[in-house]
Each structure stands twice: as C-alpha cells, then as structure tokens.
C-alpha cells in the first residue's frame, strides 16, 4: 500500500488514522478498506468531521448499514462528493418519482448515479419507461439500470425487439409474447445475455453492436439533412 501510494506518508497522520478507525468501526474489513483507500486518496485527508457528517447524512436518508457499506465499497466517492451535487441528484430522483426507500436502494446498488450527468440518468429511466414500456419501478430497481450506459440498455432492448423476443406492452400492459424480465435483459454479462436471453452468439451480439453504431450515425445524418431542408 505504501509502495503504491507514497503520498500517504505526506498526509496528516492523525486525520488519516481517525478516518481509518472510523471506517473500521462502521464495519469495513481491512481488505475492502485498503481497496477503498487505494482508490480514493481524497478520503485520507478528509477532515474527520466531514466524514462523520457525510455518514450521518446517508443514515438520515434512510440507508441501512448494509446499504451504506455497499455504496461506499463500490463507490468511495460517495464520502467525498460535493454536497450540492449530491442534493441535486436526490432532487432529480425524487422528480423521477422514486420513493425515499427506492432512492436508498438506487444509491446502494448504483451509487455511480451520483456522478452521472442528470441528462444521462433521466435518459436511461425514460428509455426504460417509454421505449420499453416498463411501468413497475420495482423491476427497474432490480435491473440496476443506472449501472449501465444508455447505449447498453438501448442495444439490448433493440436486439431483442428486432429478434421478435421483446414486445412493448399495449395500453393494458399486455403482450403477445412473454418478455424476459428487465433484469435479465440489462443486468447481465454480454455472454450470458447472448446465450440465455437473446439466443444469439457472442459474435452476433458484437456485430449487432457495430451495426447499431453505424445506424446511429446514419440517423444523425438524416436528421441533420432534414433540418437543412
């Protein structure tokens, strides 16, 4: 650790020790703790009070100890990110009609959402709601959509739709075929998705992804010329 992070020797030893101690008290094992510290040197220098305040803030939001640990492990920046940005994202999630409990879930599962642009976050949710016709927020939470890029979500959906394996539910929520769950569509590796959901080869999935890039370029071109007309 010291070899990789010689700068650590130059930080204030006392606040470092304090912070480490505090995180230990929260229940982080030394292994994951090292990993976190390794990834995020900012935490070394964080004033002790700042750290306490942030953790308190997360508790107040309603995060359980487990959720807190999950979020910090996958996204240590959650401890250092600017409060203002944090508030903005929370505001957005509320606007997008997530309940407080669901917001905690989002933060625990996909804390990355905190550093995404609001546009990107909204785009992904809207895609799932309107292009895919998913209405159940529980399903959306389970699929961890904020962990994946808009392109990832769009690609998986379009592939299935064009294969005839996904149908947008009609007004009454009905489809002629049985759609795979959102979670199986979005939250899986390429290999698993290709073989067990789309029933194509990994090669075909890659080809489709290449094709989609070119198709997007074409569409953008078309839109440009349309506007010129």
């Amino acid at each position: 650790f010291f070899k990789d992070n010689p700068n650590v020797l130059r930080t204030d030893e006392k606040s470092l020790a304090h912070n480490v101690q505090y995180l230990c008290d929260l229940g982080f094992k030394s292994n994951s703790l090292l990993l976190i510290l390794n990834k995020r040197p900012l935490i070394w220098k964080l004033p002790n009070a700042g750290l306490l305040e942030r953790v308190q803030f997360l508790w107040n939001l309603g995060l359980t100890d487990g959720q807190l640990k999950m979020a910090v492990t996958t996204f240590p920046d959650i401890l250092t990110i600017k409060k203002k940005k944090f508030q903005q994202i929370l505001e957005l999630l509320r606007k997008l009609q997530f309940t407080s409990k669901q917001i905690c879930q989002v933060i625990a599962d996909t804390p990355q959402v905190l550093e995404e642009s609001e546009y990107q976050t909204e785009l992904r949710l809207q895609y799932v709601l309107f292009a895919m016709g998913i209405t159940d927020y529980k399903e959306i939470l389970k699929a961890k959509i904020f962990k994946y890029s808009y392109e990832h979500i769009r690609l998986r959906h379009l592939l299935l739709e064009r294969l005839g394996l996904y149908q947008v539910p009609d007004k009454h929520g009905k489809t002629k075929i049985r759609n795979p769950s959102l979670c199986r569509i979005i939250d899986s590796t390429d290999k698993r998705f290709a073989s067990s959901c789309a029933n194509v080869s990994l090669e075909q999935l890659k080809t489709f992804s290449e094709m989609l890039k070119e198709e997007k370029l074409e569409e953008d071109d078309d839109n440009l010329t349309d506007e010129e007309d």
Partner: peptide, 22 residues
C-alpha cells in the same frame, strides 16, 4: 411473423433482426 416464423423455424429471428437493421 405469422408466415415466416413457420417457414423458417430456426432462422426467422435472425432474418427478422437483419431485415429491421441497416
């Protein structure tokens, strides 16, 4: 979907995918 699904029992999904793509 109705007609080609049975005409190409194995291939139809992939043909459909191609027809709807670039």
């Amino acid at each position: 979907d109705q007609h080609y699904g049975s005409q190409f029992p194995q291939n139809w999904p992939l043909i459909r995918l191609a027809l709807l793509s670039l």
